[in-house]
Design a protein around this nucleic acid. Structure first.
Lengths: 341, 341
DNA sequence: AGTTAGCACTCAAGAACTTAAAGTGCTAAA
DNA sequence: TTTAGCACTTTAAGTTCTTGAGTGCTAACT
């Protein structure tokens, strides 16, 4: 399982050249471009051995070599040097992720900016388990209420309730208090269920308002936890997808919740997970890599941002980017807690 | 400019066959599939005349005919029969557009659902001119405020302000009142400007809170009025884009604000506008059609949903869909006003 | 005069073949 | 152990050939 220095150098060069060129790498290219101090014949011999050991593969006999899943894995685990992000990228990220939005908006911004920096699609998955922090009801006008739902993960949702009769300011205040007394700490997904109980139990007097509120909240919560895919179109730029049929398949795959869920199941390892090609059980992903970052708040896992790409992707830059985002989020979300409680 | 009945029948059949098949239509196809009671030779003669008059064109001499821009236009204006939407589509639309969200969310839902029903991308453009209806400030915790900005067009925006010191409930109340007194009716885009003036003038006492609020609002408002493109990937299904290069161009075009803006400039005619191919000045759109719906609220134009497609699109279904959405919105947005004032 | 059958003609798309280039693996020499 | 050299393989690109779809025109027909 261990390679000598020369093999390491060759493997590393093949991976890096292929990542940037998308063309199988031949022995001559390595001599010319990477100034390896061996002849092309020697490199050919070594590459043959690397292929026999499963690190490289050959699309056909007269082509150069491309890294196999095992080759990428060895590169990522042993050979890759961590790159520093360019100032351009850092500035772009810093300007794009501000602390003003709620958690969900922050994560969306991050998924978006990552996809731009890496020119690959990203998928954002939010953890469903989120508890109610607070409900506020704002009377917009006589018969229109704005309901604001704050979650403990720091997400804000708002929805309208349109009433059939007008309602007093004081009623709203009382109602808000009662709702919060009964609902704080409830998982968001159970909210409408518990709400129904509250109504049944003690709030029949308010039901003309509460029914509407309940209806609205129920709908808002029933919406499937959004899975946002950013920058899916970016794949069109990749030579891997010069065939529309392949592009279509990839898009369909990304949109298939199950495929992604399955893959993400086991992507966790100190916040950063990498699945390369056939390491995933999902056959549809056999030519793809998923690199994903777990986002935590108050030591609780609240969501995940995943970069989805053909196996050919700049792993080093991807990891630097995700790490940078991670520290950024640590600060952003920490501040909430420190200053907010 | 007027065509006899036989020419109308032939033109109409060519357009409809081409819309569904994406293949140039030959004389024999017309006889077989559309049971036109003339021989193929007669139809050939007629098609030649239609081509000479500019209604049809021929990709090459041994191919059938496809409609020209002029042909589509004649079809849309004179020949097309309005289709009823299927119950499936109506149900899908009804279930997808609920009245619980704010205007912006409603429009996003609509743009999304339209793109699904028509399997074409849609672009949502929101009118910038929107005045402040109300600002609410909610104290989430000691040092964290949630600022809710309600616009007269019915859009809700919220952002956080993180304070360095804790703040009294009463301060918030006073502040909210002062802000509303000074800011209601201000165009959203000027909000932070006017806010700065307010601070300077009379609110120096609150500045430790207000500065943060101002910063947050400023950012929230500075975000370019989002132009949301839904379902861009759907183009991959169209034979027009079996070449990735073309798909790429199309995506880039959609993402180029200027191109779309230019085209949309003059899409208004009783709410529904149709631009076909070279009717647009923008050369990039010469093979595309844009069908767009103006959304009004209280007789004010607040936004536009546009379907963007190759010229080959089911115009009849598109128009039915947009009309249905339009009546739906009339009700949804009317309710706001009636009940809300 | 309008319509239609018939036929020669054109062109694109695909099949079959040819060629050129890239890159290998092996052998034998350094 | 390394390397020069060469025969060999395979793809990609280019060329030619073939087929089929569909036309436009002419001449006959109603």
């Amino acid at each position: 399982m261990n390679l000598d220095d020369r093999k390491k150098k060759i493997l590393s060069s093949v991976v890096e050249d292929y990542i940037s060129s998308a063309e199988p790498v031949g022995s001559k290219t390595l001599v010319d471009k990477y100034h390896l101090e061996y002849s092309s014949a020697t490199i050919r011999n070594e590459m043959k051995l690397l292929e026999e050991q499963g690190y490289l593969e050959q699309p056909h006999v007269s082509a150069g070599r491309i890294p196999s899943t095992k080759g990428y894995r060895y590169y990522v685990d042993n050979l890759m040097k961590e790159k520093k992000l360019s100032m351009v990228d850092i500035n772009y990220i810093d300007n794009s992720i501000t602390g003003f939005g709620d958690t969900e908006k922050l994560l969306e911004q991050a998924a978006d900016v990552i996809s731009k920096v890496l020119t690959r699609p990203t998928v954002l998955t939010l953890k469903k388990q989120d508890l109610l922090e607070n409900i506020k009801i704002v009377k917009v006008s006589d018969k229109l209420l704005l309901i604001i739902i704050l979650s403990q993960n720091g997400t804000v949702k708002d929805c309208f309730a349109k009433l059939t009769d007008s309602v007093q300011d004081q009623t709203i205040e009382e109602l808000t208090e009662i709702l919060n007394k009964n609902l704080v700490g409830t998982p968001l997904e159970n909210l409408s269920l518990v709400l129904n109980n509250v109504i049944a139990k003690e709030l029949t007097a308010f039901s003309f308002v509460l029914d509407k509120i309940c209806e609205s909240i129920k709908y808002e919560m029933s919406k499937e936890q959004k899975k946002l895919s950013a920058n899916v179109e970016s794949i069109l730029e990749l030579p891997e997808f010069s065939d529309v049929e392949k592009a279509k398949n990839f898009v369909n795959m990304i949109s298939t919740k199950e495929v992604i869920d399955e893959a993400l199941e086991k992507t966790k390892s100190n916040g950063l997970g990498i699945i390369i090609g056939s390491e995933s059980k999902e056959v549809m992903l056999k030519d793809c890599s998923i690199i994903s970052l777990d986002i935590e708040k108050d030591n609780k896992h609240i969501g995940k941002i995943s970069v989805i790409s053909p196996k050919r992707i700049d792993y080093s830059k991807t990891i630097s980017t995700l790490k940078y985002i991670n520290t950024k989020f640590k600060n952003l979300l920490l501040n909430d807690k420190d200053e907010g409680g």
